[in-house]
Nucleic acid binder design. Structure first.
Length: 810
RNA sequence: GGGCCCAUAGUCUAGUGGCUAUGAUGUCGCCUUUACACGGCGAAGGUCCCCGGUUCAAAUCCGGGUGGGCCCACCA
């Protein structure tokens, strides 16, 4: 290959990406006896675009995998796509201009599989352009046959283990998406609203009770009124009945400490259901159920004349009627935080519907213990997991009233509601089109079996990612070999669901941990350090960045983030990555030019060569140790600094004379220079290879690959720390040489002289011991600073040809 | 309301008890030197957020505060 003047990332990166794939460099070898190292990375959603945050997170996981590969491990690095669930349903509906509910589900799934396949091709291109190194042949799609099968299997297994139950229960409901949603899918939203002070009647009395509420439309759902037991104002009321205005019926007045005397008037109405506390009261006091809102978010018959009105319209009308009937005392404008569905921003309701739940509130202890057993990087991220587990209030609602997703594999007996499970050998099934495994209900003999229409929450499937990848219940030997996986790479924002749910599933199914280590990555922020969001319009598109600067430069930036912490995206950081690459290119070019025809063999080393080896050796140890702790940013910065400051600025400058004027040196000294240059350059390339995979590969193939006899730097050995290379004496001598060279440089710089300017005499003043040390590197100093002679004297000075003098005191 | 993280030159950042506080970027001066001007050498730039404590010694450990970010809870 020719040594071109510049490195062109655009062409080179594409070329190497294609080469890696063609050569199968990143293939997992199932037969290998080598120790496996596996990684569970998040499957990106097909409906979304690649975000700079993705680019960062996936790059970070990739550094680790590339490092582990170079350590000689058998790398198991699958890559999945999440094409299951609401987001995909919307994506496909929009793209094909169809409506899911108008078509039979298997057909819609088929369309989705086709559409998402196309989208995934594009996404695979995007993700490949990051230069990540998964084995693309081990892939999964959360809606594919294997994933549906595994997801349904998981359901059957947990049902048999007594972990799943179907129950009519208050669920968090999104009226827009018309589905139950999970606690974790909620988002806060600030809104201005009115605190309506409404007058309730008091049974057998003319007195009125003033109650403040933001939800007057729930008056027909009012089932009780609460006051605080310590609230002296209302002591007399407890046990009596209040009369609901407009609807004119009686509800009991009860006491409960959850009623806050400071809020509103201190009297609160309990409706089924306005919020979580209502649900608590409802179940704690056995209150009746009065649902006045339908699943579509419309008032029902219970609302009387307001029937058929949407929630917001009903609120307006009821407020008007309250006013005109003199039930309204006042309206206070307030800002309060509402729970909305994160996907659509709709205010959620609490409705009673039949849903499937996974019971886990009873195993909080086990879940906390599992969290303790995982190795968290960084450590403090475990707190988020613990907080989440401790704060759980609901079992996991597994069912969703969506059309598209993994079907829940059950039928019900119309008569006795017996649950009929699908047979495992028939999975995956779709009850809406497949026949049930029996003709009659085994319990009552009824022959009318009703298919379950609901599908699973997407997390119910994606939480199986380690099981999906390792062939759970299909290849026990492989599964047992691979689980726990080595590593989960996970953003800090999804600790509470993806990570947590995965722990739950593996624990309940196999009583195992899904992985040994978890590495939590931070977010990419905008240049000002703010969170990126569509509404702020501050999103940085990775595609643009990659086009402009290339993947290595982007990866160099992403490697500067300390694990777990967010970093602002700053273009100048990419500039330093590009500079690093240019420098690497040029330094390597220099080495390769001077190593032409060189056959590496061990030689006796010069002191200055021992010096750079000893320093390099320390660097290798530091880099290896920090990489083993997933601290790639340290590896990056230490290598960068060594490369630039020690290797380029000093070592290469010193070694030049031996390379250029080899006739002036012994054969041994020249061999030593070649040997050192070869091995140090190669080691630096290897240390940077996980972070800058393309340029290191390009340079490797310019020269080293042939000699080393390997197809890729990425399957070469990670540099090893060698005790024998540590040489404190040589380090001291080399450091002394560098200080003298620096002093001369400073002198020349201050005198506005070129560094090339020859010096007549350099006089060094130092003690006898230093003098002895310096003797071993004196020629190196002399040649590097272009001194005609170096002498030791009582008075330190540098004498230039123009008679400029400066001395060096050690 | 509870918890976690963070605060270091204009900007980003390293540094977890011990030299003159690291490096990058930016600014300024000089240097065309056969790897590289996408470079080299050098200079300027700091109350290490504030207050108190521990210690021979604190950017670092402890307590309190201030400011920023995040998670959770509450949100009639």
């Amino acid at each position: 290959m020719e040594l071109s003047k510049h490195y062109e990332p655009k062409e080179a990166e594409k070329k190497w990406q294609a080469y890696w794939e063609k050569q199968g460099i990143y293939r997992f070898d199932p037969k290998s006896k080598k120790e496996p190292f596996s990684c569970d990375t998040p499957p990106p959603t097909v409906s979304g675009k690649m975000h700079i945050g993705h680019a960062m997170a996936y790059s970070q996981a990739d550094y680790v995998m590339r490092f582990q590969r170079m350590l000689g491990k058998n790398i198991f690095y699958p890559f999945g796509f999440d094409d299951n669930g609401l987001a995909t349903e919307r994506f496909v509906e929009k793209k094909c201009n169809i409506r899911a509910r108008d078509i039979p589900r298997p057909e819609f799934i088929k369309i989705c599989l086709n559409e998402t396949k196309e989208a995934e091709k594009e996404l695979k291109k995007d993700w490949s352009s990051l230069g990540i190194s998964p084995d693309w042949s081990i892939n999964y799609r959360t809606i594919d046959e294997w994933c549906r099968k595994t997801s349904q299997r998981s359901f059957l297994d947990l049902y048999r283990k007594g972990r799943e139950y179907r129950k009519e229960a208050p669920t968090i409901w999104c009226p827009k998406c018309q589905t139950a949603i999970a606690q974790v899918e909620l988002e806060d939203k600030e809104e201005t609203s009115f605190f309506n002070h409404i007058l309730f009647g008091l049974e057998n009395s003319n007195k009125k009770l003033e109650i403040a509420t933001t939800r007057p439309e729930l008056l027909p759902s009012c089932v009780a009124v609460f006051v605080n037991p310590d609230d002296k104002r209302y002591k007399g009321l407890i046990g009596k009945n209040a009369v609901v205005p407009l609807f004119d019926y009686k509800v009991p007045i009860k006491r409960d400490k959850r009623a806050d005397p400071e809020k509103g008037t201190g009297i609160v109405m309990c409706c089924t259901f306005g919020d979580l506390v209502d649900i608590e009261w409802w179940s704690a006091y056995n209150l009746p159920l009065k649902i006045s809102i339908t699943i579509d978010g419309v008032m029902n018959g219970l609302a009387g004349k307001y029937k058929g009105l949407k929630i917001n319209d009903a609120r307006k009308e009821i407020i008007e009627d309250l006013k005109s009937n003199n039930f309204m005392v006042k309206q206070e404008q307030i800002t309060h935080t509402l729970n909305v569905h994160e996907r659509c921003g709709t205010e959620v309701e609490f409705l009673v519907t039949k849903q499937w739940f996974l019971k886990y509130l009873d195993i909080k202890d086990k879940l906390l213990e599992a969290g303790n057993k995982l190795n968290w990087y960084p450590k403090h991220m475990k707190v988020r997991y613990d907080n989440w587990v401790n704060g759980l209030q609901w079992d996991w609602c597994l069912s969703r009233q969506r059309f598209y997703g993994v079907p829940i594999p059950v039928w019900y007996c119309e008569k006795c509601d017996e649950v009929i499970l699908a047979k495992e050998e028939n999975l995956p099934v779709d009850p809406t089109t497949d026949k049930p495994p029996v003709n009659k209900c085994p319990k009552c003999g009824c022959d009318k079996l009703i298919p379950e229409k609901d599908v699973f929450d997407t997390w119910a499937t994606s939480s199986l990612s380690p099981m999906i990848a390792t062939k759970w219940k299909e290849d026990d030997k492989f599964f047992n070999k691979m689980i726990p996986m080595s590593l989960r790479s996970n953003g800090h924002d999804i600790i509470t669901f993806w990570l947590f749910n995965t722990v739950v599933k593996m624990l309940l199914h196999e009583d195992k941990l899904p992985w040994k280590d978890v590495m939590i990555n931070g977010h990419a922020l905008d240049p000002k350090g703010k969170k990126m969001s569509k509404s702020k319009g501050n999103i940085v598109e990775p595609k643009v960045v990659l086009e402009k600067h290339g993947s290595d430069a982007m990866r160099f930036w992403a490697a500067s983030a300390k694990l777990g912490s967010d970093i602002p995206y700053q273009e100048k950081e990419l500039v330093s990555g590009k500079k690093m690459m240019t420098k690497m290119w040029n330094a390597s070019k220099f080495a390769i030019m001077n190593l032409k025809g060189y056959n590496p063999k061990k030689t006796k080393l010069e002191i200055i060569d021992k010096w750079i080896f000893s320093k390099l050796n320390k660097l290798i140890k530091a880099c290896t140790d920090s990489f083993l702790e997933y601290d790639f940013s340290r590896t990056k910065s230490e290598t960068e600094r060594f490369f630039w400051q020690q290797f380029c600025d000093n070592y290469l400058e010193i070694v030049k004379d031996r390379l250029y004027n080899s006739a002036d040196y012994s054969k041994e000294a020249v061999d030593s220079a070649h040997y050192t240059l070869y091995n140090t350059t190669l080691a630096i390339l290897k240390l940077m290879a996980p972070i800058l995979p393309h340029i290191t590969e390009e340079i490797y193939h310019l020269y080293f690959a042939e000699i080393e006899g390997l197809k890729s730097i990425h399957v070469s050995d990670w540099p090893k720390y060698q005790k024998g290379l540590a040489d404190e004496k040589a380090e001291l001598a080399g450091d002394n040489a560098v200080s003298i060279i620096s002093a001369v440089r400073k002198f020349k710089s201050e005198k506005n002289l070129s560094l090339n300017k020859p010096i007549k005499t350099l006089i060094i003043k130092c003690d006898e011991k230093t003098k002895k040390d310096l003797n071993s590197v004196l020629k190196d100093i002399k040649k590097t600073v272009k001194a005609e002679e170096i002498v030791f004297g009582d008075k330190a000075e540098i004498e230039c040809q123009e008679d400029i003098k400066l001395g060096i005191e050690m």
